[in-house]
């Protein structure tokens, strides 16, 4: 009951706070839409429980997060890529402090009949053939018997799709335009692949359950097949993954520190997991 009352009062208190002490500036956060999902939910919780004034935005994605942090227009950036040497060169005055909050990995999942047909791993070249429609039968990709490929493409614009084409073509802009049936959310993707013969799609690795859908290994240049296991994702042996960061200028202080600590806490990490990413404790094993 008191919590409910608090929640109802929150906007009012914020309003009061805003007019009484003008120097209580809000914590502004900006950057990657991928990282935004758990961070925005964390901000909601902190607003309700700690009465913090937090504004989360996603202008310009990861690069927007980095540049706005460096220019001082936000106090925290969100990024789904590490801050690069060029970024540091561009903004020499900024002491980028990266806080790793989780990992986003993409698995290529197939239906049970494909798995049973003996397809367990794909190379980059094979995936390109598949994506560009040059192969249409699993036999061409190592299946024991003839079976049509039903490729469900993750909707362009989704983070999962971007990780996939980024790895395959270097950048989403270089990816060829293709027309496949498209799938959106993780639940939909898993459901459709599980119930369709010869199906394959891209899916956040944490959703590949190994019961209804099966994650393929990726064969690297050295010919070694790498499973999308937590260890391989953590060590970056598995190529289809990217780290998720929040960034501050120097060690976080004040509200930014509250946010960073919350994201690393058990509750914060459960939000990371809830949105389909790997929490930190899944990475160190």
């Amino acid at each position: 009951m008191p919590r409910l009352a608090d929640m109802k009062l929150t906007p009012f208190l914020l309003f009061l706070a805003a007019i009484t002490c003008a120097n209580a500036a809000p914590l502004k956060i900006n950057g990657s839409t991928t990282v935004n999902l758990p961070v925005a939910e964390a901000a909601e919780i902190l607003r309700a429980e700690r009465h913090l004034d937090i504004q989360v935005d996603t202008q310009g994605g990861s690069s927007g997060g980095i540049s706005m942090l460096a220019e001082g227009s936000v106090q925290m950036g969100m990024s789904s890529k590490p801050v690069s040497a060029e970024d540091q060169e561009k903004y020499p005055q900024c002491r980028f402090h990266s806080i790793h909050i989780g990992e986003d990995a993409v698995a290529l999942i197939v239906s049970k009949d494909v798995w049973d047909n003996g397809v367990r791993a794909l190379t980059k070249a094979q995936l390109k053939d598949l994506y560009e429609g040059r192969v249409t039968n699993w036999q061409q990709l190592g299946g024991a018997h003839s079976q049509r490929i039903a490729f469900f493409n993750k909707e362009p614009g989704r983070g999962t799709w971007e990780v996939f084409v980024h790895w395959l073509y270097g950048s989403p802009k270089n990816a060829p335009q293709v027309s496949f049936p498209e799938v959106g959310g993780n639940e939909e993707t898993r459901g459709k692949v599980a119930t369709t013969r010869g199906a394959i799609s891209q899916l956040s690795a944490s959703w590949a359950d190994g019961k209804s859908v099966f994650a393929l290994a990726l064969v690297g240049e050295d010919g070694v097949a790498v499973q999308p296991s937590a260890e391989n994702i953590a060590s970056h042996k598995y190529p289809l993954s990217r780290p998720l960061f929040v960034l501050t200028n120097g060690e976080p202080t004040g509200d930014a520190k509250v946010m960073a600590d919350f994201l690393l806490s058990e509750r914060g990490q459960s939000l990371v997991e809830k949105h389909g990413y790997l929490p930190l404790n899944a990475l160190v094993k």
């Binding site: 049509r148 039903a150 469900f152 049936p181 459709k192 119930t195 369709t196 010869g198």
Partner: peptide, 13 residues
């Protein structure tokens, strides 16, 4: 997907 299996639809969509 099952009823029209003879026509070999790629999926039920």
């Amino acid at each position: 997907y099952k009823t029209f299996a003879n026509f070999e639809p790629l999926s039920g969509d």
